[in-house]
Amino acid sequence: MTLKSQPTTSAAALTVGPTPLSRLTRNLVPLGVGVILVVAVAVLVPNFFQLSNILNVGRQAAIVGVIAIGVTFVILTAGIDLSVGAILAVSGVTMALLINSGTPAPLAILAALFAGLAIGTINGLGAAFLHIQPFIMTLATMVAVQGLSLRLTSGGPIQFSNDDAIFMVMGKSQILGLPSPFVIFVFVSILGILALRYLAFGRSLYAIGGSFEAARLSGVPTRRTLVIAYGISGVCAALAGVMTASRLGTGDPVAGSLSNLDAITAVVIGGTSLLGGRGGAVGTVFGALLLAVLSNIMNLVGISPFDQQIVKGVVIIAAVLITGDNLRQILKRRTVS
């Protein structure tokens, strides 16, 4: 099924389609791979389908998923955001420090989110107005913000009391029987999907990613759109930071050091092109879930963490080959010559 749907899927992946059908086909590949994986697992790893394990997968997918939804906005413009891991850490640290200095929890959370927004906006301003390549711009903020986190904490984790109800909601409790981080992930995903689909802003992201010059000549506010996209990415990363810190009761300056790569991986596995203009948040949701399922299975089967990384690397390449045009073109060239 996966193989058959391949050509149509890659073509449909370019579409901002209106019909449920095109939306479905666009995500068929990650979906198909997921289904195959799940069936294989059902046979090989019976423990996987225990409720507690499924909930655990949801919880694991949530943090990376929330970041990845934000990063999707940036990647759609043909940009990249490497600073999300650093933002995750600094927002957790900011929140922990504020709580310990007696700030009410809701205010501390807002401040943490605002920090993410500010850093993201700086990324956007640099990319849009100073024409600094997004890779370099966000690499620079990543390094600087990592330093900031370490400076604020003198290098060590900051414990705080996470007994407030709002922290339970952010990280520890269950809502309707589901882990609360997963519920937040679902909520953010729905917002992301709707924004990309129904907002003129969302359309502008696809336009800029398709052709920056055409976007400008069509009257798209290119700079403003870019700044907002990076701002959203920053806020999502900060939210992930708040979720992480709430759960652990710790603001860790080195938390999320791999989150940026995991998030980009989820976006790419979800079929969003790093060249911009193609893909969307639905794919990213599947990408994040797929990553979490994969890690979970490997844990259950007892694959060592080192080997897990190797497998992840292979999966990324496989996913890109299946969702992108590369494989198809190589095969086509073969048959022609």
């Binding site: 907002l199 003129a200 802003f201 969302g202 359309r203 336009a207 010059e213 055409a214 069509s218």
Partner: peptide
């Protein structure tokens, strides 16, 4: 420069009007 080859016909056609009239929604 004229159009967005990654987008569909129906996404391409209304884009200038959307931007011209400062519409928030599509």
């Amino acid at each position: 420069a004229g159009l967005f080859t990654n987008l569909s016909t129906m996404a391409n056609i209304p884009i200038v009007k959307t931007m011209k009239n400062r519409r928030a929604w599509v």
